[in-house]
Design a protein around this nucleic acid. Structure first.
Lengths: 149, 149
DNA sequence: TATTTATTGATACTTAATATCAATTATTAG
DNA sequence: CTAATAATTGATATTAAGTATCAATAAATA
């Protein structure tokens, strides 16, 4: 039912740079550096995490590039339960996130039933649905284990 | 299927102050003032909107009070498509939001099928689900109308 | 009424992000 | 292969949203 939790990689490794170039953006040294760092990031990183790894790249450029990647769907932004923003590489086409309310760890999931339901709900809602965002807040297995010890 | 879009009020008007008092918080003039303003706010207001209406109340107190009300579930926080935070009085018990990607207008909806689905999905996801957040991004009727004119 | 305790407002600070703009790079046209 | 043009960058300042600190004040209580 639910595909890909954490380890499975359904989408073949994307050539992120090519995606940007296809949209007319230039291949530059800062962008290549940012993309390389992104590929090594765990899910749920911050813009500062990226910036910290690249002292030679301006902070503004990091934010600008993350914004481009958001727009092209290469990464997505989500929020911890307290509203703090986090980024995540989109490893599967369209997906949603689980977020641990204790440790903030982020996971991905995809469920076709969700998408079907959203279409059904759309029929009952005024206006045209152009997208949706779902975050499941969880106590992750590790945090549960830590608690019972 | 979907209950309450905008106008229907399922929950009888809450005595927000009583909710805070029940949790052990004091009834103070600033809190009463904030609650009064909140009751007149459209869905999708900002903390600054509230603060602006109450020049006599400190900004920090506005944020502190909004935080208390978030914790007690009296209001909820959601995000516009660009991540900008917005608040909304919870007019119905448990609900989700529609957010216009053009004008930012916020609406509420509730669908029992969503809740059922979340429980089903929960069974397939590691950890314990403690909550969820769903935002439907839409082009609202007004924006569609404006566009075609 | 006195005392305890919570709350407040001012202020400074933090985090996440955007705006400005001159300097630099990449692209393209010649 | 250059020159011109156009996009991108980094530094810096600024904004938005919120938190931390702490002395002063207000509410609850003894």
């Amino acid at each position: 039912m639910i595909l890909s939790i954490m380890t499975v990689q359904l989408t073949p490794r994307l050539d992120i740079l090519a995606i940007l170039e296809d949209k007319g953006y230039r291949s530059t040294a800062p962008r290549r550096a940012i993309i390389r760092i992104l590929e090594g990031m765990r899910e749920g990183f911050t813009a500062e995490d990226v910036s910290r790894e690249l002292p030679g790249v301006g902070r503004a450029t990091v934010f600008r590039t993350l914004k481009l990647l958001l727009e092209t769907g290469v990464i997505c932004r989500l929020n911890l339960i307290d509203g703090a923003p986090r980024y995540s590489l989109s490893r599967i086409e369209h997906h949603h996130h689980t977020v641990c309310v204790k440790c903030g760890k982020v996971g991905e999931f995809r469920a076709a039933t969700v998408e079907r339901l959203m279409r059904v709900i759309g029929a009952d809602i005024p206006g045209d649905i152009v997208g949706h965002r779902i975050e499941l807040y969880v106590n992750c297995d590790e945090c549960i284990r830590d608690e019972h010890r």
